[in-house]
């Protein structure tokens, strides 16, 4: 198990890891599709934001999440504000779940996450299609949604381990 001195610089950097990782992922736009599988993609920022908003992690500033959304729009070439809106919506849903849950459970969170990303992706698709006349393949959205849902528990376990190191 990794252990840090609480006041060391390394510890401070470690606590900022989620937000650093969020920014790196939106700037780099990981698609992790090195096998070139057709349609394969998943939305890593959604998983990261949902998890840390759910855990109310104090270093995970919503304003920085908002900025990350703007960067994502610039990198991908979407109209400004779309991703920010999606990311903040994920935060809101996660925050609502946190408020109504007394005993958190991974499976419940997982299916709630599916509902949230489906709703947000549908909203995204509708806005882009109706207001900005973007021609998009809905299949990409459905598969992206599915893989994002599929990877959530795996990443949640890894991130649990990350938080455990901090709390210890």
């Amino acid at each position: 198990m990794i252990k840090f001195e609480k006041k060391s610089y390394l510890y401070k950097i470690y606590t900022w890891f989620p937000i650093i990782f969020l920014f790196v992922s939106v700037l780099n736009e990981f698609d992790l599709n090195y096998l070139n599988l057709d349609y394969f993609s998943f939305n890593f920022p959604f998983i990261l934001i949902f998890y840390f908003a759910l855990k109310e992690y104090n270093k995970f500033d919503y304003f920085l999440v908002f900025i990350a959304g703007l960067i994502n729009d610039t990198v991908v070439g979407l109209p400004l504000g779309i991703s920010s809106f999606s990311y903040i919506a994920v935060c809101i849903f996660a925050s609502y779940l946190r408020n109504i849950t007394i005993r958190p459970h991974l499976i419940k969170d997982w299916f709630y996450f599916l509902f949230v990303i489906s709703l947000i992706n549908s909203t995204n698709y509708s806005i882009l299609f109706l207001f900005f006349s973007y021609d998009l393949d809905i299949m990409f959205y459905i598969i992206n949604n599915f893989f994002t849902f599929l990877f959530y528990p795996l990443l949640a376990i890894l991130l649990n381990y990350y938080l455990k190191v901090i709390h210890d």
């Binding site: 109310e56 270093k59 504000g81 779309i82 920010s84 925050s95 408020n99």
Partner: peptide, 29 residues
Amino acid sequence: SAFLKKTTKQKFSLLTLVFLSIFIIFLSS
């Protein structure tokens, strides 16, 4: 609580940020 509650570390409430992003989407159109 989800929309308005700010913890000590948060500078903006989620409601503010939602309005801000909608405003930006509106402007970018």
